[in-house]
Design a protein around this nucleic acid. Structure first.
Lengths: 141, 141
DNA sequence: ACTTTTTTGCAATGAAATTGCATTTACTAA
DNA sequence: TTAGTAAATGCAATTTCATTGCAAAAAAGT
C-alpha cells in the first residue's frame, strides 16, 4: 500500500489533509480514477478548485500520471517509482474498459516502434480498448 | 487528393458548402487538425455549432477519425478507406509532435500486444511523442 | 417551381476549468 | 509553545468549451 505522508515528504510537499485524502482515494483502486469521479467522491470534503490544483501539482511532481480517455476526460493513477519530476516513465499499456470505462495501467511494456525517417520519438504510449477482467467475469455466461 | 463531393455522395450526406469546406480544410495538411484550429480557420464562414455537428457526423460515418491529444483536445484526420460507419480501423501509430503539437497518422501498424489474463482487447492504439520531420529539419544545427 | 426533409445559425443554457483574493493552515525558528 | 511567514485552501467571479431548442435557410426529389 502507499503511504501518503511519505510521498508528500519525499516530494517536498506540505502535508495537508486534502492532499492526503486525494492520494488515499486514488490508491483505493488499482484502476485509474477520473477527475469527475474524484470530484464526486471528494466534493464534500475538498473544494473543486483545490482538487484541480492538487492533481496538477501531483502530476508536475511525478506522483500521478494523467491519462486522457476517449472523451478527453483526465484520469489519474499513481506513478510507478521510476517517474520523476522531470520525466514520466509512462511506457506501459493503458487498458480502457468499454463497459465500466475504467482505465487500468497494465504491467506490459510497449514494444519498440520504428519511426519513419525524420521523426524522433521520446515516448510511446499504448491504449487498448476492450473489456476488463472484472466486467468479463461478471458478464452473463 | 480527396474529393469532398464524392465523399459526401458515398456516405449519403447532403452536399452543403459548409461540409465541403470542412473536408477541404482538413485535407490541406497531412497532419491532423485540432478542433480549435479548425474553428479559427473556418469560424468566419461556419458557425461554431455547425462545425461541431459536421465533425460529429463525419466521425459517425467513418469519414474522419478523432484523436485526443494530451490536453484532451480533439484532432481530426481523414480516415483511410477501410473505415466504415460501424468500425474505425484506426490501428496505426499517431505521432504527436511536442514542438508544433501536430498529430500525424503514421503508416506504421500498432504492434500486437498480449493482454493479461481476463482482459480482452478489441482495439489498440499507439501514440508516440517526440519531434516531427518538419520540426526536426527546421531545428538549429 | 413546389414540397418535404435536412441543415444551418442564433440564442440560451449547461458544464468544465481558471483566476484573484481573503482566510486558513502548515512549517520554522525563537 | 508560540509567533511569524510562506503556502494551500475555499469562495466568488470569470472564462472557455460544448450542447440544446428552435426558426430560417438550403438541399433533393417530384
Amino acid at each position: 500500500m502507499i503511504d501518503p505522508a511519505n510521498i508528500l515528504r519525499t516530494h517536498d510537499l506540505k502535508h495537508t489533509k486534502q492532499r492526503v485524502r486525494v492520494l488515499e482515494e486514488i490508491a483505493l483502486d488499482t484502476a485509474a480514477i477520473s477527475q469527475p469521479e474524484l470530484e464526486k467522491k471528494l466534493g464534500k470534503e475538498i473544494d473543486r478548485v483545490t482538487l484541480y490544483r492538487i492533481l496538477n501539482t501531483y502530476e508536475d511532481k511525478g506522483i500521478l500520471h494523467r491519462i486522457m480517455d476517449m472523451n478527453g476526460t483526465a484520469n489519474y493513477a499513481i506513478c510507478s517509482a521510476s517517474c520523476t519530476e522531470h520525466h514520466h516513465h509512462d511506457e506501459h499499456v493503458h487498458f480502457n474498459c468499454t463497459t465500466c470505462s475504467k482505465i487500468y495501467c497494465l504491467e506490459v511494456n510497449v514494444p519498440r516502434i520504428k519511426m519513419p525517417q525524420g521523426f524522433t520519438a521520446t515516448t510511446v504510449t499504448s491504449t487498448a480498448y476492450g473489456v476488463c477482467e472484472k466486467c468479463n467475469s461478471s458478464a452473463v455466461h
